[in-house]
Design a protein around this nucleic acid. Sequence first.
DNA 1: CTGAAAGCGCTTACAG
DNA 2: CTGAAAGCGCTTACAG
Lengths: 330, 330
Amino acid sequence: MARVSIKDIAIALGVSNATVSLVINGKEKEGRVGFEMAEKIRAKAKELNYEPNNLARSLRIGRSETIGLIVADISNIFFATLAFHIQEYAEKLGYTIVITNTNEDTSKMEKMIQTLQSRQVDGFIIVPTENGEEYIAKLVKSKIPVVLLDRCFPAIETSHVMIDNHQTSYLATRHLIALGCKKIALLTYKNKLHHMAERKRGYVEAVQNANIFDAGLIKEVNYENITEDTNNAINDLLKIKDLDGIFFSTDSVCVAGIKYMQETDKNIFKKVNLMSFDRNEIFDFVNYDVPYMMQPLPEMGRRAIDILVNKIVNKSNTSEKIELQASLHS
Amino acid sequence: MARVSIKDIAIALGVSNATVSLVINGKEKEGRVGFEMAEKIRAKAKELNYEPNNLARSLRIGRSETIGLIVADISNIFFATLAFHIQEYAEKLGYTIVITNTNEDTSKMEKMIQTLQSRQVDGFIIVPTENGEEYIAKLVKSKIPVVLLDRCFPAIETSHVMIDNHQTSYLATRHLIALGCKKIALLTYKNKLHHMAERKRGYVEAVQNANIFDAGLIKEVNYENITEDTNNAINDLLKIKDLDGIFFSTDSVCVAGIKYMQETDKNIFKKVNLMSFDRNEIFDFVNYDVPYMMQPLPEMGRRAIDILVNKIVNKSNTSEKIELQASLHS
DNA sequence: CTGAAAGCGCTTACAG
DNA sequence: CTGAAAGCGCTTACAG
């Protein structure tokens, strides 16, 4: 039951390893192997049930045709869907995707990157953690191809694929304003990630332009303590007279918010308009049509792969910064 | 920027590759390298920023310490969570998990397995597709370590980790009966997978024992057409006089069912008791406490890894068939 | 305590 | 059109 190698085929047929390798890789034309010999080799390969050893191949050619995908939380439907699209597309290009998970933990991210590097991945697509800037900077400096996804560090010169968070947030807020809202709250994560700051900036710009800015309407919650923090924030907000809009900067906060509001006041949605970032399945079960800004997940995945593969294949070193548009669903 | 290898360290220090390798792998004691030399080697490795090449190592030792995990749908929270736990646990044991996705497509499953085999994974954890029996049988016969997860093919002699579907389903139905239900419907997938048949069997046994079996209360829907089929099934069921219970054999069907029922009749949950297989986030947003049978995902993941690693390391060839208990939440 | 050498399975110049 | 040989970066008997 020992695995059969190129050598076994070569010996069985009395030819050289080189000839077999050429045929197996379909290089018989440029490679100058006779048609009959090629046919014999293919037949023998099938007969012996030959399966190539890609480890050996990778070692020899110096590429593994494997890409490391590092996401923040694979059990979050947003990242799971993104991972799904990335895998689908990468497969078409002949790359295998290795997905790993950081749980928003920087030391874990570092460990994952090291593990994958020792397995010789050709490049990385990374959703970086909040405190991961230093390590990502080091990684990028080491010249291994990297594309950041969904999030970025403006101080580092890297390629990234994300949406235009500022613009998306601005448009989301404008939508509430167009609906006639005058007191619009923002419920967002408290962290240093740039994309979150951009979402806040988009909101602030929109309410300022409409002359309805009020710093007291901005509430920030911690990722680790989302339920309790959100409940408290909503409690505070509902005390505000004439509150008529809440913009949630992610669907996870929106879900937590809606859950609490439903329990608190069944008629809340008649008074307060919501807006979410990304869709969540639970929206179908709420007695209110939640409008949301949808990120183009399949395209984000494709673009990330395209840029990364270009870096890998052409050794391109330019930083491509892609910011896609999200679409309003209401 | 060329990667530094063991050889570079050896040359820099004027020692042999073997000595460096021994130290790097912490085998200096059994390996008989002097402490001072070991220290010098470690220092030089750090200085040169040495990172081992696991591809080369795997090729040499004949193991990759990588496990292929093949799930049916990574964007389904059930599998995503399972994948998460498997990865967490495998990492502790020094294994890297490569996750891929079949989308319930058998030809895709075959392709994924081949790809991973050529990358020399040491073994597989597989959630097999409905028509994948033949290929899985072939795979198992080839002696590569395999553990089936969540589903199994009784005709094939393999290891598997799943729950006791019959018993779980039986208890779920008993719960509805204990609540006083006399007309309990079953809403399940129409497919040939054994675990689904077991869920049906558990339901049938429970209602037969209670003398309330009625074949007309069993409705089957297609995975590909879940929304429409479920709506039709629910429509039929709601025409039945005195219907007082519905058991959903998976949370995905339950979600579809609840969605439709909510739209159809707001007071439905006062008349009909539900029971779901597994929990879903949307249950929090339904005006009714959905009871469910919860599968022990972390344990399922751990057991699958333990069995697989045992096969890999000890070349164990016995089939371990693990059937865990699910717990009732109501 | 340390080194020289073979070999894992492949690919790729080079020679003929 | 085909073969002999080197080498990717490791590990592991074997010899001393």
